[in-house]
């Protein structure tokens, strides 16, 4: 299981590294080569063709004069940074529904039950504990992005919270020194280095991501002490516990996003990409 993930990522990277034209080309080739890939590759070629016109300006712009057409141009300004094409849409659609059901049938009931029996203080403590454990990830990524000051803050937070914060269950660094956690990860680091999102991809259980961010998540895994727990069952169990604790704070968020959306798939895709872009920019 652990080996499957890197292979998938490598495969995606390989696909992703080819530029649009050659992918479209190879998609066409595979149509000829094998009938089974027919539908998949057509979708790929189609979506590649679909997204290219977004960059070209529409020609009928000139005959549209309005005293205040500022809103038209602003549209285009912010499209590029938070952009990721979606050639894997058939897969993503399946995963979207899978995760949706997983949330409503499993995650939400467990999270609710957990929230009902665990006092707020314990849940916050557990969250703090896991956040403290993931300090190496944030610290290293601050450094990789050349944010020395932020790295220092992460280091100071770790020292403070691990000692007088009882192994990280409390967050005195924030309470007394107003030192805020610096939300950095490898996906953002790659973004800062100029790596584009690549394709949008929805991971089973993990939710929305892109090729870049998945690669980042994979790299970050090695910086998290939990990864080195043996046996694997224990590591997975602890990880699941962390996720349930996390979700117990966020029950209802997903429902709100869905309720507020006319096209939940697109809303979540855009929301994810925007949030990531804003984090990279920070």
């Amino acid at each position: 299981m652990k080996i499957f993930f890197p292979i998938l990522l490598l495969f995606l990277f390989w696909l992703n590294s080819a530029d649009g034209v050659s992918i479209a080309q190879s998609a066409e080739d595979s149509v000829n080569a094998s009938g089974r890939l027919d539908r998949q590759s057509q979708v790929t070629a189609e979506s590649l063709n679909n997204h290219s016109p977004t960059y070209s300006t529409e020609s009928d712009d000139e005959d549209f004069e309005e005293e205040d057409s500022d809103y038209l141009y602003e549209d285009e300004e912010d499209e590029s940074e938070s952009y990721a094409s979606d050639p894997l849409k058939p897969w993503n659609n399946v995963m979207f529904h899978f995760n949706d059901k997983f949330y409503f049938w499993i995650l939400k009931p467990i999270g609710r039950g957990y929230r009902a029996i665990m006092p707020d203080m314990v849940r916050i403590g557990v969250q703090n504990f896991f956040l403290n454990l993931s300090t190496p990830t944030r610290f290293v990524n601050c450094l990789l992005q050349g944010k020395g000051g932020d790295a220092e803050i992460e280091f100071a937070r770790f020292l403070t919270n691990t000692t007088i914060g009882f192994l990280g269950f409390l967050d005195p660094a924030k309470a007394f020194h107003d030192l805020n956690k610096k939300d950095e990860d490898l996906g953002q680091t790659l973004g800062v280095w100029g790596v584009d999102n690549g394709w949008y991809i929805i991971m089973p259980f993990l939710g929305p991501s892109t090729v870049r961010d998945s690669a980042g998540r994979f790299g970050d895994m090695f910086l998290n002490p939990l990864y080195y727990l043996e046996p694997v069952q224990l590591s997975t169990g602890v990880w699941a516990f962390e996720k349930i604790n996390d979700i117990s704070f966020r029950i209802g968020d997903y429902e709100t996003i869905k309720e507020a959306a006319f096209d939940p798939y697109e809303s979540i895709r855009d929301g994810y990409l925007q949030r990531r872009a804003s984090k990279v920019g920070r």
């Binding site: 549209d75 912010d78 959306a261 006319f262 096209d263 697109e266 809303s267 895709r269 855009d270 929301g271 925007q274 949030r275 872009a277 804003s278 984090k279």
Partner: peptide
């Protein structure tokens, strides 16, 4: 949290 509401609706619309 970094997500423009207007842009989010724009992609959907």
């Amino acid at each position: 949290e970094g997500v423009s509401l207007v842009k989010n609706y724009r992609t959907q619309f």
